[in-house]
Design a protein around this nucleic acid. Structure first.
Lengths: 339, 339
DNA sequence: CTGAAAGCGCTAACAA
DNA sequence: TTGTTAGCGCTTTCAG
């Protein structure tokens, strides 16, 4: 790999001049030298050394996406279809903006912060952070960052987040179930904080509007680890007679539950109806096709990168919390009881 | 962010000493100074500057995975479940080996090479490269690299690849169809080079063993672009009466085809049987569950990283082409004609 | 056991 | 229009 200095020496000119033509600051350089330099660059296929450039400029051209991943849930986080699509969209946006993407996945915030600062990244996108994580990160990392899918404590300011109408989504889904005549509806998720908590809220609100209470045992909490999930599904199967419908916090579980139950003889949606959340690929693959809440994951990634790069470029942002819309997509997994 | 120099100054010692304790070259440092330095490091949360370190050492601690992605097929490459799982496995392996992962996706080899050399990456994993791409890359990039799923021209040497028994997979799948009594079997893929060509070979070989010829029109080539796929599926539907079974080069298409056909009234597997390849999540989601060829994608990613890091650390490798096994997984998408 | 200093490749302020 | 030079933070050789 040839360096600026070598080009300069070979041409008998200064590094500044070479540097200037490399950066198109060509107003102050004679035509002749420009051509000479460009010929050299082409001939030797000059490529800048990012480490040197970054060191000199105290930046990095790197956008990092950091994800806090529960060990039991994400043995391979990117394999998850939601995470995969989101990171794919982020990757594409970052790349087309001439930045580079680095990925840190860990359940240890400290480790994530160390990596981020060792590379001096220009901006940070944070996935799966809790409220507590957020304040810690905000305190330690002083450069632009945007959270995705985070819910913060009320009073904190200066956080940028791109999220979803989570509560509205499950509210719509549950209301749809109610309108279809369902009254015994369980909720299903693998945790009850952050996004899933909001989704639970939406579910509850819809029930309340119909004057239906919600008992603690109507919330089925799934344990995603491979050696535990079976037991959870089995328990659900065991209690499934008590419900006519299931409101799931994600398509992932909706589809899993549908197949588990139908493989054990339950007819979906006649014996039990199911709604999901996310509208990912599996929602259209499964049969009956899944009625679910659609979100635009790709858009989410794009918006996150767009917001972040604006901040990286010194712009001040107005909205602090960008909420993307959701929409009910009716397919075939819900029975209309009242027809 | 505090620097080595600042620590040294504050302590009234030299940067060399500080550096030595940072790197555990502690034999030549007195207990007292070690403690002082470590206290400083903890207090100010010293984190090394990678750009500086890399510049000084002429390396980067970065492993890059570069993927050549057809524009029509991969609008968002990581969203694809095969790519997502593979990259996820690579990410995890890279991370646990204390390296950092950068991702470059492009259909322009030149651009990929430029990025790779601008960051001075220590090693490179290449996805989706054709034989031609490979020789070009090999010529330009002089550091350790391993290809995944590539097929090279016969005579080239010194390439490291981790691949699959592709031909064997479709051979087994097709043989299984034949054993079940199927004689009119179409093949379905979106290209006919590299991996998919091998898979086609396997299909043909099985047919030949049964004395069955294979006409050109039995190869259905799908066009993955959103605005073209419908027409391809429609054509397949149109000709589907002529076949009793479909051998698909990937689960992606197998599942798509199953749903397309069954939504149009075809009964699977009674009207038409389907086998896939990959055994990804959708194979177990779709109903009837897909009979397919299983591959261990995670293993593939792990092996690629493991091989690569060995080379990065100066080891010479023996095998140049690591072929991972495949295995037929029988589920419910194939009809037994002979029972 | 400790320190001085050169150098990695690039940038940018200043000089000419 | 072009050149000089002092860094950026870390490594490493060599000398004490």
């Amino acid at each position: 790999m040839i360096t600026i200095k070598e080009i300069a020496d070979e041409l008998g000119i200064s590094t500044t001049t070479v540097n200037n033509v490399i950066h198109g600051k060509t107003k102050e350089v004679s035509k002749a030298t420009i051509e000479k330099v460009e010929k050299m660059i082409a001939k030797y296929e000059y490529v800048p050394n990012m480490n040197a450039r970054n060191l000199a400029q105290n930046r990095s051209k790197i956008i990092a996406v950091a994800m806090k991943a529960r060990k039991d849930k994400y043995e391979n986080a990117i394999k998850d279809s939601y995470v995969g699509e989101l990171i794919g969209a982020i990757e594409k946006s970052v790349r087309t903006s001439e930045y580079f993407l680095m990925i840190y996945i860990s359940d240890d915030i400290g480790e994530i912060l160390k990596n981020v600062s060792t590379w001096n990244v220009d901006g940070l996108i944070l996935l799966g952070m809790s409220g507590d994580d957020s304040v810690m990160i905000k305190k330690k990392f002083k450069k632009p960052m945007v959270f995705v899918d985070s819910y913060f404590c009320q009073d904190v300011m200066g956080y940028y987040n791109v999220g979803l109408e989570d509560a509205k989504g499950t509210y719509e889904a549950t209301k749809y179930l109610l309108e279809c005549g369902h009254r015994k509806i369980a909720f299903l998720a693998d945790n009850c904080v952050g996004v899933d908590h909001e989704r639970f809220i939406g579910y509850k609100r819809a029930l309340q509007e119909y004057g239906i209470g919600c008992r603690e045992e109507d919330f089925f909490v799934m344990m995603p680890a491979e050696n535990e999930i079976e037991a959870c599904l089995d328990e659900l199967y065991h209690y499934s007679e008590q419900y006519t419908a299931l409101c799931c916090a994600s398509d992932y579980y909706a589809v899993m539950v549908m197949n588990y139950l139908s493989d054990r003889g339950k007819i979906i949606p006649d014996d039990i109806s199911v709604v999901g959340f996310d509208d990912n690929a599996s929602a259209t693959i499964v049969r009956p096709a899944l009625t679910t809440i659609h979100q635009d994951v790709t858009k989410k990634g794009e918006v996150a990168v767009e917001k972040l790069l604006k901040m990286v470029n010194g712009e001040e942002l107005e909205e602090e919390n960008m909420i993307l819309p959701v929409k009910l997509v009716v397919r075939d997994s819900v029975k209309k009881m009242n027809q």
